[in-house]
């Protein structure tokens, strides 16, 4: 594991060095990516241009959800978003060249074409969080203060696991890849808003089937001291780390199964 991390860092460092040879282009591309990433935030601000509350939540509260969700998603995307292109590697046969190297193909795919400009997408959520955290109407007990980094880390791990999980599907069927974006990109979008907006059954699904509610919604209920609109047990607010670990295990199993399938069928 430590070895994998060391290699990962090394691969990324090589990419950053390569990109840094064209610094102006790197900065401009970074800003363009940041602008794309900021669109979701602009959407939220447009809503609040018309109303002070949405589904009972104020602008700082929704921006808090946006900031935590986007930050977790971008970090996960930077680390493992490359797995989205697994299908292309299968189709072009480049996965084979990864399989003859003594390093997990997961690490190789994740770092393939790594670009530092993807990190520029962190800009909007970081700015939003820096702005909004001091303005939250929260009672900042030690527990709530600790919960913020905890939710960011578990959110990142959940999104990372979802990247691997959805990529694993591409070992078996490539064509349906676009549908799995509803879980990754869709998950990133829907966690930017309070789940009290959505239909109750949908939220139940997002809690117990695809655990997107644990990216930030459940922990945020604790930070903001809100009742759960579905009346779910309060213990769920602290379950995010456990959910993240469990989802990782599922993703690892899926990846292994997918790789085994690929290696037995070669397609």
């Amino acid at each position: 594991m430590a070895d994998a991390l060391r290699l990962y860092a090394l691969l990324i460092w090589t990419w950053i060095r390569a990109a840094a040879q064209f610094p102006v282009s790197m900065v401009l591309l970074g800003l363009a990516s940041a602008a794309v990433a900021a669109l979701d935030m602009v959407g939220i601000m447009l809503l609040f241009a018309h109303t002070p509350r949405i589904a009972g939540f104020t602008a700082p509260e929704v921006l808090f959800l946006y900031g935590t969700s986007a930050m977790s998603f971008v970090v996960a995307d930077v680390l493992l978003g490359g797995t989205e292109r697994l299908g292309e590697h299968v189709r072009q046969g480049t996965l084979d060249t990864m399989l003859v190297r003594p390093v997990s193909p997961l690490i190789q795919i994740a770092t393939e074409d790594f670009s530092p400009r993807r990190m520029a997408k962190l800009l909007p959520p970081v700015v939003v969080l820096a702005f909004v955290l001091p303005r939250l109407p929260a009672d900042w007990t030690a527990g709530r203060v600790v919960m913020v980094p905890v939710m960011l880390v578990s959110g990142t791990v959940i999104f990372a696991a979802l990247w691997v999980l959805t990529a694993s599907v591409q070992f078996v069927v490539i064509d349906v890849h676009a549908a799995t974006k509803s879980v990754t990109y869709g998950g990133a979008f829907l966690t930017q808003y309070p789940m009290s907006l959505y239909a109750r059954d949908f939220v139940r699904g997002m809690t117990f089937t695809i655990p997107l509610a644990f990216v930030n919604w459940q922990p945020a209920l604790y930070v903001l001291d809100r009742p759960d609109p579905l009346g779910l047990p309060a213990a769920l607010r602290f379950a995010a780390p456990a959910v993240a670990v469990a989802l990782c295990a599922v993703a690892a199993l899926a990846w292994r199964a997918g790789l085994r399938h690929y290696r037995s069928t070669g397609s």
């Binding site: 290699l7 090394l10 691969l11 090589t14 046969g93 003859v100 190297r101 003594p102 074409d113």
Partner: peptide, 25 residues
């Protein structure tokens, strides 16, 4: 593989070979 490269498309050859050095330790 003659039809596909194991090198990284966007990296200079030297960097690709350095990466390989690390991959193979």
């Amino acid at each position: 593989f003659g039809q596909r490269t194991t090198l990284w498309w966007d990296l200079p050859l030297r960097d690709s070979l350095t990466l390989i050095r690390h991959l193979y330790r």
